[in-house]
């Protein structure tokens, strides 16, 4: 059995890409300031000196252009990993990703594959305000032809990034700037992979299900601690993969606890958590003892002042308040 190592989310992500680049010469990186500058969030640090400008490609600040070039390279059989400095900038590349990348396989009836990964941090960091704080995973998870994953732990980003690189379809790996310094145990196994479409139970409980993904999974874990002090046993469901979505694990938890709170950082209205909540309502109606509750980001553009910003992002207190309303 392989051992395991403690490392940060950032280190696990870095290690995952490095190992896959070593395994497969068709894997290359592309993005703004990822090479010589080592990446804005330092995820790609050290890769440029190791692989050079052929495989670690600094791009101009033209997101649509490089998303499209990487897509074309994937159509020719290479396996690009494209970094968006922040996922908010991927809005400039939306036509490429949605109207081109996501359509290649279907429009060619499977004749052309598009093995590409788009990754980067999305959601609020710290006082980056309205244009740099978007949670857009739901936008992408809306699109047939894309796969979308939002790993919350170092082990998950390590294993899911490998799965993404190996996938023959376009994958959005949606990180969160608040996760890069999170520490965790990661298997010391270059072949370690986590399949998409598998949610996980990070804490068992019988009284209610706290359902979330990405950084909100950590908020849910913290909330469960607080609830335990009140004698309430919350089950924490980490969805991990939005498309494909593992409704089976989510429903099984709800059928056990009969109460569901869905937590997501994206704007509350129309975010992906609303999709999860809607499905639970549709498919688990008879199992529910209370309406499904959504806890989402405030429906406002992200403000700058720290006190206002914190107001927008769901935290343990917001989830706790929602749980108390359930009774």
């Amino acid at each position: 059995m392989a051992g395991s190592i403690e490392m940060t989310y950032r280190e696990a992500l870095h290690k995952s890409m490095l190992e896959e680049m070593d395994k497969n010469a068709d894997v290359f990186l592309m993005g703004e300031d990822i090479g010589r500058y080592e990446g804005t969030f330092k995820v790609t640090k050290g890769l440029f000196p190791k692989y050079g400008h052929r495989r670690v490609i600094d791009t101009p600040i033209t997101e649509a252009g490089f998303a499209g070039i990487a897509t074309g390279a994937a159509m020719a059989g290479l396996r690009p990993i494209v970094e968006f400095m922040t996922m908010s900038f991927s809005i400039l590349a939306m036509d490429q990703i949605i109207n081109h990348t996501a359509k290649v396989h279907y429009m060619t009836n499977g004749e052309v594959k598009c093995p590409i990964v788009f990754r980067g941090p999305g959601g609020a960091a710290k006082q980056l305000s309205a244009q740099h704080s978007h949670s857009m995973e739901g936008w992408y998870a809306h699109v047939p032809g894309l796969k979308v994953v939002c790993p919350a732990t170092p082990a998950d980003i390590y294993g899911m990034m490998k799965t993404a690189i190996d996938d023959d379809n376009p994958v959005i790996v949606y990180e969160n700037p608040g996760l890069y310094t999170v520490k965790g145990i990661v298997p010391d196994d270059p072949e370690f992979k986590i399949p998409f479409g598998k949610a996980q139970i990070l804490r068992e409980g019988k009284d209610l299900s706290l359902i979330g993904y990405s950084r909100m999974t950590h908020v849910n874990l913290a909330t469960a601690e607080l609830l335990a002090k009140e004698g309430i046993e919350a089950e924490v469901v980490d969805v991990r993969s939005l498309l494909p979505l593992d409704t089976e694990t989510i429903y099984a938890s709800v059928r056990k606890t009969h109460r569901a709170v869905v937590v997501y950082e994206d704007w509350r209205s129309g975010g992906f958590g609303a999709e999860i909540a809607s499905r639970i309502g549709e498919d688990c109606f008879d199992d529910l003892d209370a309406p499904v509750i959504r806890v989402g980001g405030l429906n406002v553009p992200m403000p700058y002042a720290r006190v206002l910003e914190l107001q927008c992002i769901p935290d343990e207190n917001d989830v706790l308040a929602a749980v108390h309303k359930l009774k």
Partner: peptide, 27 residues
């Protein structure tokens, strides 16, 4: 599309496929 004969489409968004073509050349 007919990739075996080198035909990569066939795209409907004006100018949208131009980076894809450059991507084929990149490969």
């Amino acid at each position: 599309y007919d990739p075996k004969n080198g035909m990569f489409g066939g795209w409907g968004i004006v100018g949208g496929h131009i980076p894809l073509g450059a991507g084929l050349a990149f490969a």
